[in-house]
């Protein structure tokens, strides 16, 4: 993989993005620039309240957040012209920090409906092919098939919820997976299982791009990023390789918060 991706391999291009909570006037993102190439794994790290999760929600189209300036191109297309479901069908997947419980709806039924929605035109999902595929995906992620009959996130432990996110990702096979604090609330064993699942998916599809959003370095011990960005006060203030994560692990975010550092240009190539 090249560290200087060609512009035509850009999957995601974020330009001077500013955003806020729809019902408030305070900007949370204050000019974010970021390019993600095909097959690249990027990590955005930052202290609480820096805007990391807001960026994830803006990319997925959460109705409570609103972009006020800048633009986002996904495979060359203006992302803000797409509704939430269209973004998913275009290939964006958001692994939720807090997956939502849907009582009474089995994971199998949910995934079948989702996959059917991803098919073009009037194409009908073959139920037998689907079941085979789901079984295969679950065995790859070392999940018991009975899990598919449980209701989506209903009464799940933190670890089960996150594994369910990875299963959905494995079934939907996105072009870009945005993983919002996937490590939060997981003990080390659960974290390893989840990271292992993600790594299997990237092995299987080296062209899948990943944007990891995390507060802690520890996730990056298991999912190796190509690029690490530091977000403070709604801006990416530093970009570089995995070594940045190690620096943060040692020194924390204090230096960044106090230095008043600002981003300039496209961070990744800075």
């Amino acid at each position: 993989m090249s560290s200087e991706p060609m512009s035509d391999t850009h999957i995601l291009k974020i330009e001077s993005l500013e955003a806020k909570v729809a019902t408030e006037n305070l900007d949370i993102l204050n000019g974010v620039n970021l390019e993600i190439g095909k097959g690249e794994v990027h990590a955005i790290m930052g202290p609480n309240g820096s805007g990391k999760s807001t960026l994830a929600k803006i990319l997925a189209g959460h109705p409570s957040y609103e972009a006020t300036a800048g633009r986002v191109l996904f495979k060359g297309q203006n992302l803000f012209e797409l509704d939430v479901d269209e973004r998913s069908r275009a290939g964006i997947f958001l692994a939720f920090q807090y997956p939502v419980e849907i009582p009474g709806v089995s994971i199998a039924n949910f995934l079948r409906t989702a996959l059917q929605a991803h098919l073009v035109d009037e194409e009908e999902l073959d139920i037998f092919e689907f079941t085979d595929m789901l079984t295969e995906r679950m065995s790859m992620l070392e999940m018991d098939i009975s899990f598919a009959e449980r209701h989506v996130n209903d009464g799940f432990s933190g670890g089960e919820k996150k594994r369910n996110e990875i299963l959905q990702m494995a079934v939907l096979r996105p072009t870009l997976a945005v993983m919002d604090e996937t490590d939060s609330g997981l003990d080390i064993d659960a974290l390893k299982i989840v990271a292992n699942g993600v790594n299997k998916l990237t092995e299987e599809d080296p062209e899948m791009s990943i944007l990891l959003i995390t507060h802690y370095q520890r996730l990056l011990n298991y999912i190796k990023p190509d690029f690490v960005h530091v977000m403070v006060d709604g801006r990416l203030v530093r970009s570089g390789g995995p070594e940045i994560a190690l620096e943060l692990e040692k020194d924390g975010y204090k230096n960044w918060k106090d230095s008043g550092a600002v981003s300039s240009g496209v961070p990744k190539t800075a």
Binding site: P63, S88, F93, L94
Partner: peptide, 8 residues
């Protein structure tokens, strides 16, 4: 939002 983010 959760379900729509999966393409529904």
């Amino acid at each position: 939002f959760y379900l729509m983010s999966r393409g529904l």
